[in-house]
Design a protein around this nucleic acid. Sequence first.
RNA 1: GGUGCGAUGGCCGAGUGGCUAGGCAGAGGUCUGCAAAACCUCGUACAGCGGUUCGAACCCGCUUCGCACCUCCA
Length: 466
Amino acid sequence: MQLHFYNSLTRKQEPFTPLDAKRVRFYTCGPTVYNFAHIGNFRAYVFEDILRRTLKFAGYDVCQVMNLTDVDDKTIRGARENHVSLNAYTQPYKDAFFEDLKTLHIESAEFYPAATDPKYIQKMIALVETLIAKGLAYKSDDGSVYFKVAAFPNYGKLSRLDRSTLRSGVRINNDEYEKEGVGDFAVWKAWDPADGDVVWDAPFGRGRPGWHLECSAMGMDLLGETFDLHTGGIDNLFPHHENEIAQAEGATGKPFVHTWMHCAHLRVGGEKMSKSLGNFYTLRDLLAKGCTGREIRYVLLQGQYRQPLNFTFSGLDDARKAFERIDGFVARLNSCHAAQQPAPFAGTFLAQFSDAMADDLNLPEAFAALFGLIREGNAALDKNEPVGGVMEALQSIDRVLGVIFWNNAKSDAEIPADIQQLLNNRAQARAEKRWADSDTLRDKLRDSGWDVRDSKDGQTLKRIPR
RNA sequence: GGUGCGAUGGCCGAGUGGCUAGGCAGAGGUCUGCAAAACCUCGUACAGCGGUUCGAACCCGCUUCGCACCUCCA
């Protein structure tokens, strides 16, 4: 299975080959833990989960790093406003983030380094020292250390932005007079009284790391000076990822990352969902409205990752309906106990699925393969033709999608005694062809929140979702 | 102003030169005590205007509209 990914660095789709034959090392920009993440943020994390699962599906071992930014202006401000320590402020949001990942069936990364971890602070300090020693960073009058963009000729190779043609009037920065160049960015921020006790000692002065520095230092420490993949939201392409490259390649003289992949935004009402616009839903908002993590994951999986995806509530309704189809098919398959001859179409749709994922994670095409498999599978069951291998194909597909086999049987398993009694009565009525009684009992069950359907094999009971 | 992306049927959303995308909704049919499910059939979709071509949703140009980044942001 030869994977192809679009590389933001070359702006082309390329065959993907990891630096190690068997193992893919990749870095994903994680959350800043100053608040609950919204589902726009989770589009990126779900995309990265699909990437991770596709790499494993293709037979690679994966070593994924997702950082937690737990020190920056927003986290410090939040801690101060709430009169708690930085750690006390960020910890609940870290916990919430991991809960949310579980809710969305996002597989765990191998490493979740936190920026305030003393081990990584030391790595960051070492990186700054290297940059200073190489003349790529300088200390300004206020004690902060800036990266000297003019000293790094490759600056701009990812974003292809020319710093000299910036729109006039846009860039107004209070600290600008501290910097030698207008595009220079802080790698180390000097302590400010507002920072309180959030401060570390460094040879070049007390302060805290710049945001971009964290990812360069932690990425190289955990994955090596050069690694395979680096992902994030498209809005991180500039300046964050450009700056990461400058810091890392400036320090090592080696290529930092081979392939950069960027996820387009989740939109609401045609605009980017973001905290600054106030048009966002957190995962918790949607769960409180009665949505499930499964529906939300499905919705986030609907587009190709490089295209913006429009979030709507009718999309969630569509997801619910699609699950009836998927779950109904899985239930039908499960009720076929007899050993089955192989179904010829199972391999066809699995191959279509595999090709789609290998083609820069073409999820819409991958879902078309899934639904094709379901359609042909249902048709085969209708005609009593063999469906051998179909369940196995579904399981393979779900290793990547993570949305078919959802452990949601629990609520349906516990049927209250009174409901079971109604069900038994109805079975009796049907056996005696008392259709009016059967229909009355069906209505009764529905009023109690249970949906009953009849098939050749008997009654099927399902709790009606709120 | 610079750098990119986009406009597809009622909605969402693939496709990038000839061949069914898919999901949801809708219409007709098969099956069924009914209902549901399932399966089959259907809608003559490609922003506009030119151009290239035997042939364009797909390539080229222009126009209109939209979005993102250039500032913390997935």
